[in-house]
């Protein structure tokens, strides 16, 4: 059997008195697009940050392609944070230089090509961009790496529906079939068509891990409808 790209064993993260993740055990395979779904404050971002190596587990462990988070895993993980980290003074070409310096697997030509298709010139300043455009630039950068694991934290939150479609298309057309993409979101209806599997997370626990077609087959309803049922307030 091939090794899972992401493996959590009794993974726990505590912030002071608050338990963000409680003994999560989870294995995610290679070559899939996986939705990490849960209401606000359920632990989605915490899990992604642990996988990205930005947080350390309080208990248990998390492994990326068999390795504990560190230099090796950061080289194969492409992470899109929920907040933009591009500095205002930069132009698009500066950011491209930046990524080229940092990541050996960055494909500059691909990034430039995608930017051109969105009419974003490389001389454009980050400062003058709208929030949505910044998000698009950042997603293009992240998807232009040839990573094994893409971690996208709320990639479609701040953009209009047309841009959302564009972003989803970018994800479908750019990930290679051995890579896994994890997308965290609560906008399920918009993305469920592109997902292989979904992980429902609630109050720091994984409550469901299943394929989208299995959910539809067994419940006769969409993932979005099931989510509304499971997390009914």
């Amino acid at each position: 059997m091939t090794q899972p790209i992401l493996q959590c064993k009794r993974l726990t993260k505590v912030f002071g008195a608050k338990t963000a993740l409680a003994e999560v055990s989870l294995e995610l395979p290679k070559g899939k697009i996986i939705g990490l779904l849960g209401p606000n404050g359920s632990g989605k971002t915490t899990l992604i940050k642990l996988a990205a190596g930005l947080l350390k587990p309080s208990e248990g462990e998390i492994r990326v392609d068999g390795n504990l988070p560190g230099i090796e895993t950061k080289a194969v993980v492409s992470y899109l944070p929920e907040r933009t980290y591009l500095s205002d003074w930069m132009r698009v070409c500066d950011v491209l230089d930046f990524f080229e310096d940092f990541y050996a697997d960055f494909d500059r030509a691909r990034a430039v090509d995608m930017l051109e298709r969105l009419d974003i010139t490389t001389s454009a300043k980050i400062k003058t961009m709208s929030k949505g455009t910044k998000e698009k630039v950042q997603l293009i950068l992240v998807m232009s790496r040839k990573a094994s694991l893409y971690l996208l934290d709320e990639p479609i939150g701040g953009v209009d529906p047309a841009a959302r479609d564009y972003i989803l298309n970018t994800i479908i057309s750019n990930y290679d079939t051995n890579a896994t993409v994890i997308i965290s979101t609560h906008l399920i209806a918009d993305i469920e068509q592109v997902l292989d599997e979904v992980v429902f997370i609630s109050k720091g626990n994984v409550v469901l891990h299943s394929s989208v077609d299995e959910i539809r087959e067994q419940n006769g309803k969409s993932v979005d409808d099931l989510f509304r049922e499971v997390f009914k307030c």
């Binding site: 070559g31 899939k32 697009i33 479609d165 989803l168 298309n169 479908i172 057309s173 079939t177 068509q193 592109v194 997902l195 292989d196 077609d213």
Partner: peptide, 14 residues
């Protein structure tokens, strides 16, 4: 497969 997936806006695996 990839192009067809894109036209249908679905996952290539599907």
């Amino acid at each position: 497969v990839r192009d067809m997936a894109q036209q249908a806006s679905v996952n290539p695996n599907t």
